[in-house]
């Protein structure tokens, strides 16, 4: 099974379109999923903004916490790696056969549900965020530089989380219960990707871990960039680490895909 992984094709776009149409059929289901993903950051938004009250915690006022978490909810929805779970299931149940038979690289299948899903989620999440912004009154000092730097930070965050989730899911070629690892990954994202608290507020050791490990760069980093929490050198180091992890994730994905497929024989085949 040798195939160019990244060759674009007309079939790829057709698949993306059809996946999107089929996802729109199940709107309400995905709205509920999006709602579920929104709740944890929303809890911490409320907890931290209440805790800050009229004063500030480590320099963050109530309004700054609101702005931080509202943007975090958006970034979390955009970068959320649903392939984490779906690709693993496809392999475990042998349904990936169908995907392998198509004359386009299987990566398109994941990309197709990625785009379809993201659009459906955003249709739900953006209006809610706008309403929340009116109610909770965020305070954001937006500079042009931060806004511009946010765009690549967000794209890299998405790519990092997508390929990171994909390589983890590919472990299903070797171990049938690899989903325990995914649960671990979710906990680490919760703790170290700026959800439970902005990274700057984490106690010493956790903060160091957060800066080194890839999870911050999947969610928190773009948010820190746009809310102006980072100095220029911190931003540059951040980008360097983010790109480094992204490249590592793509390499891991490519390697595991190649060796995994050789090992793979469909269930019941």
């Amino acid at each position: 099974m040798t195939r160019g992984i990244f060759t674009p094709s007309r079939g790829g776009w057709a698949l993306i379109r059809s996946t999107w149409l089929s996802w729109m059929q199940y709107r309400s289901f995905f709205f509920i999923l999006a709602f579920g993903w929104m709740i944890p950051p929303l809890i911490y938004l409320l907890v931290w903004s209440t805790a800050a009250g009229e004063g500030s915690i480590s320099g963050m006022t109530r309004g700054a916490f609101v702005a931080y978490y509202l943007i975090l909810i958006l970034v979390n929805q955009i970068t959320y790696a649903q392939t984490n779970w779906t690709v693993g299931d496809l392999i475990r149940y042998g349904q990936i056969n169908k995907v392998l038979l198509r004359p386009i690289p299987p990566l398109y299948d994941a990309l197709a549900s990625e785009f379809a899903g993201k659009v459906v989620y955003l249709v739900f999440v953006v209006p809610i965020l706008v309403i929340l912004a009116f109610v909770l009154k965020p305070e954001l000092d937006l500079t042009l530089l931060n806004a511009l730097a946010f765009i690549p930070a967000l794209i890299f965050a998405w790519a990092l989380r997508f390929f990171w989730g994909y390589w983890l899911a590919l472990l299903a070629f070797w171990a049938t219960r690899a989903d325990a690892l995914l649960a671990l990954q979710d906990s680490l994202v919760f703790l170290l990707a700026g959800q439970v608290a902005p990274i700057a507020l984490l106690p010493g050791a956790l903060k160091t871990l957060a800066v080194i490990l890839p999870f911050r760069y999947m969610v928190a980093f773009p948010v820190e960039v746009i809310t102006g929490q980072l100095t220029r050198p911190e931003m540059l180091t951040g980008f360097a680490i983010q790109v480094g992890w992204m490249v590592a994730a793509v390499i891991l994905y490519a390697l595991l895909w190649r060796y995994g497929l050789k090992r793979y024989s469909a269930v019941g085949g």
């Binding site: 911490y44 671990l184 906990s187 439970v196 507020l201 106690p203 956790l206």
Partner: peptide
């Protein structure tokens, strides 16, 4: 394993908040 993770994230979340 998942129970322990659940416990850990819950407790750490509270510790981080009351650390501040």
């Amino acid at each position: 394993f998942t129970s322990l993770l659940n416990l850990l994230t819950g407790v750490l979340g509270i510790l981080v908040l009351f650390g501040q």
